[in-house]
């Protein structure tokens, strides 16, 4: 419910912001001497751009309800059908990257938490600090350089030439092959912070009185870790999952543009450069939706993993 309100708020906010912008798609047309002022005027009237703001917002909402999300002037078609495949591709990329990042971060962070003050501790501290300080942009470009130099991976796009003609299995393989580089960029971008966080929460849990008590009872270290410490650390980690999504989506925007992954990012940039306003709004709303969905998922997970919250909510 709260999420729906937020989504409505974001839609209004972004609509007003974008509509207040000076110039529109047709304003650029005026610069073209071959198109007469009258034509531009007629076009603006046809698409309702001469109407007052509240009416335009109402129309846009109506079109949102139909799943069209307004009309793209540059493509000459509703935004919805342009958006869905892009959203799917962004989801494919971010879900894969999130899954991989957590699969890496949880074991590594847990292991790190049990190795305090050693060469491994120092090495991981240094490595994660370096990765944290490496700008996303440089990281992405670096991976691209690797691909260009070695030719191990495709340097951009989502499919190879002739993808349509491939048999089903080969197509999946083709997409997976193209996924490697962008996913690697995202994973390297978010894993350092994740690992540090996992280590901190597991270390916290290991120092908690009930875990020390368990150890004092002579329960083996392995069982202490898995039976007592990890469940206690799960709670903050699930909360982090929700929080980390915003960063992931932001970075995904950059990765998609630089590695020409046909997700929301390139569409968004293209729409901004073309002043195609309804097409600008589409990715904004879609990303908000993804973020809210992720947070909802985190809340549900939290309720599932934490018995205390279940009883509080009744």
């Amino acid at each position: 419910m709260h999420g729906l309100l937020l989504l409505a708020g974001v839609s209004l906010l972004s609509f007003v912001l974008v509509e207040l912008a000076p110039g529109d798609y047709f304003a650029e047309m005026r610069l073209d001497p071959r198109i007469s002022e009258a034509t531009v005027h007629a076009l603006r009237a046809r698409y309702g751009l001469d109407r007052p703001l509240p009416e335009r917002y109402g129309r846009w909402l109506a079109s949102l309800a139909k799943g069209e999300l307004g009309y793209s002037f540059a493509y000459g078609q509703p935004v919805g059908p342009l958006l869905w495949p892009r959203l799917r591709n962004t989801l494919l990329l971010t879900v894969t990257a999130t899954a991989l990042a957590w699969l890496l971060a949880v074991p590594l962070g847990t292991w790190w938490a049990t190795r305090r003050r050693g060469p491994a501790d120092a090495a991981l501290t240094g490595l994660t600090a370096m990765l944290l300080a490496l700008p996303d942009l440089v990281l992405v470009l670096g991976l691209l350089l690797l691909a260009v130099r070695t030719g191990w991976f495709p340097t951009g796009g989502m499919v190879s030439l002739g993808h349509e003609q491939m048999p089903w299995g080969a197509r999946v393989k083709d997409v997976a092959f193209h996924l490697v580089l962008p996913v690697a960029a995202l994973v390297l971008g978010i894993v350092p912070a994740l690992v540090r966080y996992v280590r901190a929460s597991v270390a916290d849990a290991l120092g908690a009185p009930f875990v020390r008590a368990a150890r004092a009872h002579g329960i083996p270290e392995r069982r202490v870790l898995f039976r007592h410490a990890l469940p206690a650390a799960a709670n903050p980690l699930v909360s982090l999952f929700g929080l980390s999504l915003a960063g992931l989506l932001s970075m995904s925007l950059l990765v998609e543009v630089v590695m020409s992954w046909p997700g929301l990012g390139p569409l968004f940039l293209e729409a901004i450069l073309a002043r195609d306003f309804h097409l600008v709004l589409g990715p904004v709303l879609a990303s908000t939706f993804l973020l809210l969905g992720g947070n909802l998922l985190a809340d549900l997970l939290l309720a599932a993993t934490d018995p205390r919250i279940r009883t509080e909510e009744r």
């Binding site: 937020l6 989504l7 708020g9 974001v10 906010l13 972004s14 912001l17 974008v18 207040l20 912008a21 000076p22 110039g23 999504l245 915003a246 960063g247 989506l249 932001s250 970075m251 925007l253 950059l254 968004f268 940039l269 729409a271 901004i272 450069l273 002043r275 306003f277 600008v280 990715p283 904004v284 990303s287 908000t288 973020l291 809210l292």
Partner: peptide
């Protein structure tokens, strides 16, 4: 504030940048 935080940061940045002349 919640409204501004509901959007992924870079998307919000781009959306606001979109409203300014190119």
């Amino acid at each position: 504030a919640e409204l501004f935080l509901a959007l992924p940061w870079l998307y919000l940045l781009f959306a606001v940048r979109a409203m300014l002349p190119l």
